[in-house]
């Protein structure tokens, strides 16, 4: 079992292939890996509730073991309140991200 950190900076509105990273997170989790999907920049547009066809919702159903986190600055920068985020999303920050980035046992992917 490997550790994966998938960092999603894109959103499904500007980029049509965003579900690629969500699908990858789900598939890696199904393979028995420990997966974190970290939303940053416009990736946090999926953190609000009531987002149309929200890939976070689908991922939570498909692979509930995937940990989904959202960068606090990216949320604040966009005026997205940390109260009432989409279910299953944990607010995180770059300090926490760095802790994983420097872990030599973690495979990291930026998208």
């Amino acid at each position: 079992m490997a550790q994966y950190l998938l960092i999603e900076s894109r959103d499904p509105f500007e980029f049509a292939d965003t579900t690629y990273m969500y699908d990858m997170a789900g598939d890696l989790s199904k393979n028995g890996n420990n997966v974190t999907l970290f939303l940053i920049q416009n990736g946090v547009f999926c953190a609000r509730q009531n987002v149309k066809n929200n890939p976070v919702t689908s991922l939570r159903q498909k692979a509930p073991g995937v940990r989904v986190e959202a960068d606090d600055f990216s949320l604040r920068e966009r005026g997205i309140s940390t109260e009432g985020l989409e279910s299953g999303i944990t607010v995180s920050n770059v300090d926490n991200l760095v802790d994983r980035l420097v872990d030599s046992d973690t495979k990291i992917v930026w998208h």
Partner: peptide, 17 residues
């Protein structure tokens, strides 16, 4: 339009970097 609709949201804060 598109993602730029978020520019209209009150309460954006990019301070502290």
């Amino acid at each position: 339009r598109g993602n730029a609709v978020n520019y209209g949201v009150i309460g954006q804060d990019a301070s502290g970097l």
